[in-house]
């Protein structure tokens, strides 16, 4: 498995959000905006987002990691970082 690129991670994040908020308009969400507030994700939506990110990337996301998923830029950085760790430690 190859680590995710920035572009891949960013698109996984957006696709996952779009799955939960089908009408999500990303033009109003800057990379450093708190997307959860802008797109009005409640705690159930956010949990679905974590579920989707985890399923799509195979990356384990614990509750302690939730603060990393606050902005699009943070979330992208988090996924890329985790996928590098994962591929660095496993021979696959």
């Amino acid at each position: 498995m190859k680590p995710l690129t920035d572009a891949e991670a960013a698109s996984v994040v957006k696709e996952s959000i779009a799955q939960i908020v089908p009408d999500a308009d990303f033009t109003g969400v800057g990379p450093d905006d708190r997307f959860r507030d802008v797109l009005e994700l409640d705690s159930l939506d956010f949990l679905s987002l974590v579920e989707s990110l985890s399923e799509r990337t195979g990356i384990r996301i614990d509750e302690e990691d939730y603060p990393e998923l606050t902005t699009l830029a943070d979330a992208t950085r988090f996924l890329v970082g985790r996928s590098r760790e994962a591929t660095g430690t496993s021979p696959a």
């Binding site: 705690s43 579920e51 985890s54």
Partner: peptide, 17 residues
């Protein structure tokens, strides 16, 4: 919540609500 959610996949976690 933190204790029981730890180790659970996201689909099985509880939210405070």
């Amino acid at each position: 919540l933190r204790r029981i959610n730890r180790g659970r996949p996201p689909a099985d976690r509880l939210v405070p609500a």
